[in-house]
Design a protein around this nucleic acid. Structure first.
Lengths: 226, 226
DNA sequence: TTGGTTTGTAACATATTTGTAACAATTTTG
DNA sequence: CAAAATTGTTACAAATATGTTACAAACCAA
């Protein structure tokens, strides 16, 4: 997990379905890989995923058998959602015995898909309430997205908060503009690297006197601290 | 407007049983929801119920395990009655450790059922009159599902009540639209996240001058208080 | 059923945040 | 010490996010 995004592997023998899944879930902020068969999936490193979406009916190895292999041979507890047109009692029972966390009957609506995915992922990773404190009387509250200076919150927008939190939690470490761009903006978004400068100027202003805690090392980047 | 009816959630993998439960308890003046599996129940917002009726033997997640999740993961103290054909000493112990408030062995008579339910709800009611008070003269009465501002009740619908109660009981904590959706609507309901905005607008309006106690932090979500 | 209430959606109006470009100030380098 | 490169600052434009309204759909009690 490079950027905090949840990784999903979708396995289905229909190219169309894979495209729909990938397109929509990527849009929801997930990182989506796809496989056209169970065999292809088994050649991958499956331990890096947070969720599997498996078609039940495909090729020689069904979604059920793939799930079984994942659970038993690879000993993974990663949640699984089965995609299926079938809805008989028999199928459900087979699926649940294999530890299916949910079912999605085709055809499914995009909303239903993303709701189920969201629900499963949330359940498997409870929210964390971290409170980190750093020198210079700065406190970062990652739950409420607040940064305090001497006990008083600084009014920051989202990007501003993300940058300052990054700095404070890594005080002293120098971040190049590209580091900041990829960590705060993500890798898909393309903005001028001067945007970073402007955003930092805005943070400094909101920090008042303490604004000079954000330093610049010419030619390298920005960092926080003395 | 929220009515004062007690809400019961019945979970059993037999459709027939669910119908019997729903029909009879509704007739007794309760509001009854049903789920055909523990998985389905877990996708709901479970904090809004006053009693759970759980079948012990079902699917991959038994009633015992469901109760465990309710107690531990969701941190709810809502009373639980187990429905079971089994009656061994072993089962009883497991159930009571999980905080079972009663047992009902299948087949059970309707009279027995409603007597047990009434007894449990009466017993748990007094303690359920949780009254939490927060700054700004707001009081939440979780038993009657009422919220008072300066002693006077605000006329809220169910969703409105749930959101405002969530906010007041967690004053200062920021909730994203997704947080609110999954806590108030549950994970099985699929609605646009803008629905949250509209509902909050409605709450604010009903709160009158105090409406601005519900704040928004752009890009993050809503919270109550300063 | 019926009519009233609640809830969900879409469309539009505002407000806030973010991105860019231009230019000023500073630092680095030869 | 200049010239070049880098960084700081400002004002404005574009993109996002939120507030609000009206109406449709779902729900519920009689």
């Amino acid at each position: 997990m490079t950027n905090g995004k949840k990784r999903i592997l979708a396995v289905d023998d229909e190219e169309d379905i894979l495209e729909i899944l990938a397109f929509n879930l990527t849009g929801e902020g997930y990182e989506v890989d796809t496989c056209i068969s169970a065999e292809e999936a088994l050649r991958k490193n499956l331990s890096g995923y947070d969720l599997f979406l498996l078609d039940v009916m495909m090729g020689p190895i069904s979604g059920f058998r793939l799930a079984e292999k994942i659970r038993k041979e690879l000993a993974l507890t990663t949640p699984v959602i089965f995609l299926t047109a079938r809805d008989s009692e028999n199928d459900r029972i087979t699926g649940f015995n294999l530890g299916a966390d949910d079912y999605l009957a085709k055809p499914f609506s995009i909303r239903e898909l993303s709701a189920r995915v969201k629900a499963i992922l949330r359940r498997s990773s409870p929210e964390q309430v971290t409170i980190e404190t750093v020198a210079g009387d700065f406190t970062v509250d990652t739950a409420d997205k607040l940064i305090f200076s001497e006990g008083k919150p600084i009014e920051l927008t989202r990007k501003e908060y993300e940058i300052l939190a990054l700095f404070i939690c890594n005080a002293g470490k120098i971040f190049s503009r590209n580091d900041i761009l990829s960590k705060v903006w993500g890798d898909e978004v393309i903005v001028t690297d001067r945007t970073v400068d402007v955003t930092i100027a805005r943070i400094r202003k909101k920090m008042g006197e303490k604004g000079n805690m954000i330093k610049n090392k010419s030619g390298y980047g920005y960092y926080f601290g003395d």
